[in-house]
Design a protein around this nucleic acid. Sequence first.
DNA 1: TTGACATATTCCTATATAGACATATATACT
DNA 2: AGTATATATGTCTATATAGGAATATGTCAA
Lengths: 110, 110
Amino acid sequence: MARAATTSDAFNAVAESRRREILNYLALEERSVGAIVAGLGLEQPSVSKHLRVLRDVGLVRVRRNGRHMLYRTNADAIRPLHEWTKTFERSWVHQWSRIKERAEAKGKQR
Amino acid sequence: MARAATTSDAFNAVAESRRREILNYLALEERSVGAIVAGLGLEQPSVSKHLRVLRDVGLVRVRRNGRHMLYRTNADAIRPLHEWTKTFERSWVHQWSRIKERAEAKGKQR
DNA sequence: TTGACATATTCCTATATAGACATATATACT
DNA sequence: AGTATATATGTCTATATAGGAATATGTCAA
């Protein structure tokens, strides 16, 4: 069996770094395909295809304005990734306390 | 060109759902390969291969105990994903205020 | 050393890309 | 209608899987 399709979920769609760049670029304001092409220095067909994948998994929304297609990031679709990574936050807290403990131990040494 | 290797970074490694399951399973305590096989109901070679990928990108740590290999999740390697998803948090806050605004507007209506 | 247990690796195959290039579709303008 | 602009899609290719089956490697125990 091959890898799961890039359009199977947000995790797979976001695995590609260009697609993450596009999502970053579209996070604050909607942009046309041409703007993405110019802004990120990618080939137009490549951008269109990446947008297609992102659209299929709901990571971007589109609206048409004349002959321009305006895309914007749909942050809600990223939220599940955030939630999943968050489940490991506990360990970082532990790390923090470990660092703190070390710092305190060092302080006591003097 | 094909997709980036699963071992190229945490994003690609984590795209596979089984690997996420394994990371969840190993988040709180270290476990042997056999325990993972039994706990998640996967084939042993499959688990070994997934662990290999996770190990290559630093998502798990191993130590040997007799003939058992004890794996545990290295949460620090997940942190970059968390940080990236977090950059979109702003939009969720906006959503929150939008919901709040709506709720307040409804309250005023009465 | 031999056997049993635990884990890793190899080989094979169907499948899915991402990029480059060419081309199709859609819309606006004259 | 005809042309220019903007975007999407199709084709081709090299590459990388994930799963299954078989097998190799490593470690302990008698």
